[in-house]
Amino acid sequence: MLADYGYIALLLIAAITVPALILLLAKVVAYKSKRPDPDNVKSSTYECGMQTIGSSWVQFNFRYYFYALLFVIFDIETVFLYPWAVYFRQLKFFGFIEMLIFILILVVGLVYAWRKGVMEWK
């Protein structure tokens, strides 16, 4: 049992090492320009060729906020669904009805959000 997670830990190390090695190798062998860049144009952020205006780290209207809220609700729902699915054979009909009620409560929320037009692009 614990050995299973030993393998995961080994893969964790390998999965960190491989991309790190690739990136480090690139850092060593990649071409390095010696040309001066007086106006800091080359290393400024790309904005269709014109001079960059301001930073993008600003406050702006985040349209996906309601999706994020709905996601939290439904992701937590799936956390409840997985153990239910594994033990469904023992729970039988009782489990079926119980999960039906649980999902219905959430679906009411989804339908409400749908009818309110939250999930529409305006």
């Binding site: 960190i16 991309p19 790190a20 990136l23 190798l25 690139a26 850092k27 062998v29 990649a30 071409y31 390095k32 320009s33 800091n40 080359k42 290393s43 400024s44 952020t45 960059t52 930073s55």
Partner: peptide
Amino acid sequence: VLFKEIIHPTEGDKLILWIAPA
């Protein structure tokens, strides 16, 4: 692509830019 120059924006967050692809 391995020998191409790596250009990173001076205004960006350098550490995060390195970690993301990894």
